[in-house]
Design a protein around this nucleic acid. Structure first.
Lengths: 116, 116
DNA sequence: ACCAAATATGCACCTATAGGAATATTTCTG
DNA sequence: CAGAAATATTCCTATAGGTGCATATTTGGT
């Protein structure tokens, strides 16, 4: 999980994934679309591959890269408990309460029933 | 978006968010639970705060921190187009096709109608 | 006002990483 | 096998980030 975040933190890598969302692409295509040097793209692809975010196959001298969704599913899974927070509007409630009167409150309303 | 990924890449910061999911907490509580030095926790909290992932209010000498879900919603939104890929099982299809015959395919099947 | 408690900040050190330029590697073509 | 096309790797440098330690800051109590 840590690695996935680190890898996705790089803007050009996210751009690569964006492009690959449209389908398999050779490296040169990515170089053209991103306007980044070929070595830089290759390095990012290596990083992405090692993180399992892309995979490649060879076609003559070219390497065709495509997306792998598995790590993104992990990310989605990581996000899930947080998603529940805003979907249940629990955070809205919290924010509302604290916005009303920030100084005089104590912590009663802040702790969920599931204390520890 | 970039910043959110960078900030979430740090394991201790994710652990902080995990704890805050249970409700507002003072810094000392986080220090105890994480087993990380107090200055380290404070710095992480600062980073999280600047990224909008937490907010704090003062209660006497303590600062109570709580989660902010907004950046996580952004992350969720970023993830959405990718989620569509695996939910529609499009990625399975791609992988299947390329597994069948890796060498003889050309790029017709790789490009989406929305070329650029 | 002074001391203690809780938290934040500054500094130094180390490690990881992105990018550029040059070069190595792989694979096709003839 | 030679040469070209496409991609990968290496070396270098600059920069950012995490941690520990010491210290500054804020706030409450008496």
């Amino acid at each position: 999980m840590e690695r996935v975040f680190e890898v996705l933190a790089e803007p050009n890598r996210r751009r690569i994934l964006d492009v690959l969302r449209r389908g398999e692409q050779p490296v040169g295509e990515l170089v053209d679309r991103l306007g980044v040097s070929q070595p830089a793209v290759s390095k990012h692809l290596r990083t992405l591959r090692e993180a399992g975010l892309v995979e490649s196959r060879s076609q003559a001298q070219r390497r065709l890269y495509r997306l792998r969704t598995e790590p993104l599913r992990d990310l989605d899974a990581w996000l899930e408990p947080y998603r529940m927070l805003w979907e249940s509007r629990l955070d809205d409630l919290e924010r509302h309460l604290s916005a009303m009167d920030d100084d005089h409150r104590n912590e009663e309303s802040a702790r969920s029933p599931d204390g520890d």
